[in-house]
Design a protein around this nucleic acid. Structure first.
Lengths: 304, 304
DNA sequence: TAAAAATACTCCATAGGTATTTTAT
DNA sequence: ATAAAATACCTATGGAGTATTTTTA
């Protein structure tokens, strides 16, 4: 049995006339009759009751017609869907992101993609940097957004989406609140609230190093995982911390003051499994990277 | 796109090896590769990522594999189902019967068919003779069971399943209750309960005629539609009536006494639309007729 | 270098065309 | 008498086979 025969059968079941049905599928009547006959013989049932004046469906034919229509429709939809997947218009992307990425244009970049590709399901989940890497490797995640740079790590690839200067976050009523900028010397004596080193060891170490290069040792009063928790601690006067400059989210009761000295930046990277992405993923990544105006760079990295 | 290509694709999606997949579908590797390539080109998407060492499904291929399996399964099931319908093993039969038919071997005949053809759905509904004929003509009913004989009526065909003598049904405490048999002369003076003439005019008229041929006129005290209602009236002493001899159902408080004289019989006919029945219907009718040991006769009538 | 997919070609099975016959109204 | 399906027979597309090349791990 072939789809061709189902197409022919559907035609004759709807026309109830071999000649018209044949011309509808653009073949001559005799081979058309042959195909129908072959179909009936193969499945072992008469589908049409016909004589030279009238054609009508048998009970079997009625049932088979419904089935044939359904099968042909499913085949068409499957082919179309796959074509759309290949064009990146349809599918599913599993995205992981670090909490800090919420405080960036990333949510808007994802929203823009969703609008442009409404039939792509974007599943996002908040994950730490290491969890992202593990899940990308295992295939549970397609793309990750993390502040951790990959120094050419094994099977993974990444690009930097943006790099943002850190600022000092102090409570609105802090003595620094009215300063235009601060030096590390100003900050060193203050109680510092920092993220746990395990989360982003490189960033953590380079912050400490920035101080020690000036002969300073910061007073780390608390390590807090979770931005909103840290923001609450700052606002309530438990200490000060670093936040990306112009942070748009966590600033209730908090003032951001630029740092005068050289200081590590907050970078956001997009990470994926090198050479392993569906067209849907590719479309997603291109859209997000494009949103960050990194098209050229992205293409270099993605096409290896 | 053809089912052949789906079959091939399923094979290679499962084997992840063109050579093995090709031999699984009993063709050589090169034409097999051609077919897969053609499929991919037609639907406009790469389904398999392959090099000379490894074959794996793309995201599109994974999706298409599921669809292909489903489509092939549906096609197989459809063909199989239609074949079973043609053999009368699967389908649906709409049956109409007159109430009186419940007091006969018919229910058991239907039960026997159901047991032998568990995948045929038998829809039964109680209908009068004329309603049966109308519904059979319109196609709502496939088969009817009625006491009304069709004198070679237009598009309908029928056979007699059985013919049963009538007996007199009297209440257990009636003066006739201990009689061995009764003549029409005995019965004529009694209050008679009869079915409405409209239901079975021929039978009604022939009953009256049986009396009048002996110069008798029966006293019809009531006309009652519905056997159970009639039986209740008899039992409560409102009159006597005719029931098929050895009636198995309606005999609480009722005694049946044979009739000595010539008298119309109670016949049950199976009725269907001449030359218009599915194989499922045919199977049903043959089974029921066979139960009534009418195979030979039935076959004569059914095959015109 | 060796296993496996892709090419290149050849062949034939069968889908499809043409001419004609059969059939039922 | 005629419209339409079936049959008979022919043609040619394309599915499948064989031999060979290309590829990459």
């Amino acid at each position: 049995m072939e789809l061709r025969q189902l197409r022919y059968f559907v035609a004759v079941a709807e026309e109830l006339h071999f000649g018209r049905a044949a011309s509808r599928v653009h073949i001559a009547q005799p081979p058309f009759s042959q195909q129908i006959k072959g179909l009936e013989e193969e499945i072992g049932a008469r589908l049409l009751e016909r004589n030279s004046r009238k054609v009508r469906l048998t009970a079997e034919g009625q049932y088979f017609y419904d089935q044939a229509v359904s099968i042909l429709a499913q085949a068409d939809v499957a082919a179309l869907t796959v074509a759309r997947m290949a064009k990146g218009e349809f599918g599913c992307v599993n995205v992981g992101f670090m909490e800090i990425a919420m405080d960036s244009p990333l949510p808007e970049a994802i929203r823009a993609f969703r609008q442009g590709s409404p039939d792509v399901s974007v599943q996002i989940s908040q994950l730490g940097a290491s969890a992202q890497l593990a899940n990308i490797r295992s295939g549970k995640l397609d793309v990750g957004f993390s502040t951790v740079f990959l120094h050419g790590m094994d099977g993974l690839a990444s690009i930097r989406l943006f790099s943002k200067k850190h600022a000092i976050a102090v409570p609105d009523d802090h003595k620094f609140a009215s300063e235009k900028s601060l030096s590390l010397e100003d900050i060193a004596p203050e109680k510092l609230i920092l993220f746990p080193r395990s989360g982003q060891p490189d960033l953590y170490d380079s912050i400490i190093k920035a101080f020690s290069e000036k002969g300073l040792v910061p007073i780390i009063s608390q390590e807090v995982a979770g931005l909103s928790g840290a923001a609450a601690l700052i606002a309530s006067g438990m200490g000060i911390t670093f936040l990306p400059d112009n942070s748009r989210v966590f600033r209730k009761g908090i003032t951001l003051i630029p740092i005068r000295d050289e200081f590590p930046t907050m970078d956001l990277f997009m990470v994926w499994k090198r050479g392993d992405y569906s067209n849907t993923n590719k479309g997603f990544m291109e859209s997000v990277a494009g949103y960050f105006s990194k098209y050229a760079l992205f293409f270099d990295e993605i096409s290896e």
